[in-house]
């Protein structure tokens, strides 16, 4: 057991956790950040995806003890961070997912939306092929991915539209 100092969604939090606990377990069961989901136990499904220094990683394979120092963003962080940045309402990715019907059961989507958010941070207007590749580590069982890809394209289109206007 050690006391970890983690940077989560802009906060510094101290949390005591045994070394064999994953970041996912600490997020969910120590910090109450249950938005990160567990679907497969071992890195096969992507539901536990969080952003580590802006890049998607799997919190079920990442030890909490090795997560100190990095900026960790979970799904709970997107809306507040968007507000902090001067936006209104949810992050445009979250909003687009909702408007496109991409949230059926919603269980895989926190991870999916974070993968999409990372892609959009990295690339201004990714192609459909790039979207598919960026989301190819997040399994969804409800949507057939169609409305998910539409949602990411909508978020991109609106960003491009906003820039141009």
């Amino acid at each position: 057991m050690r006391v970890l100092e983690l940077k989560i969604n802009g906060d510094r939090v101290e949390v005591a956790a045994p070394d064999h606990w994953t970041l996912l377990e600490v997020l969910r069961y120590r910090l109450g950040l249950t938005g990160s989901k567990q679907g497969c136990d071992k890195g096969d499904c992507g539901a536990c995806t969080v952003l580590v220094d802006g890049k998607p990683e799997l919190s079920c394979l990442k030890l909490a003890a090795l997560s100190e120092g990095a900026e960790i963003t979970t799904i709970e962080g997107l809306l507040p961070l968007h507000l902090q940045a001067g936006g209104t309402g949810p992050d445009p990715v979250q909003d687009a997912f909702d408007r496109c019907g991409a949230l059926q059961c919603g269980f895989c989507q926190p991870g999916m939306m974070l993968s999409a958010r990372a892609l959009l941070n990295e690339c201004h207007s990714p192609s459909q092929a790039e979207i598919k590749k960026a989301l190819s580590g997040n399994l969804c069982r409800c949507t057939g991915y169609t409305q998910i890809i539409e949602a990411v394209e909508l978020a991109i289109a609106e960003r491009v539209g906003a820039k141009n206007s």
């Binding site: 994953t22 071992k42 079920c60 394979l61 030890l63 090795l66």
Partner: peptide
């Protein structure tokens, strides 16, 4: 040794390896 952990962690969850200590290269 644990590097990225992407192979070791699933293998440890499967109890294929049960080391008492992991040395992280991170």
């Amino acid at each position: 040794i644990i590097a990225g952990g992407t192979d070791l962690m699933p293998n440890m969850k499967h109890e294929l390896f049960t080391p008492k200590k992991l040395v992280s290269l991170a």
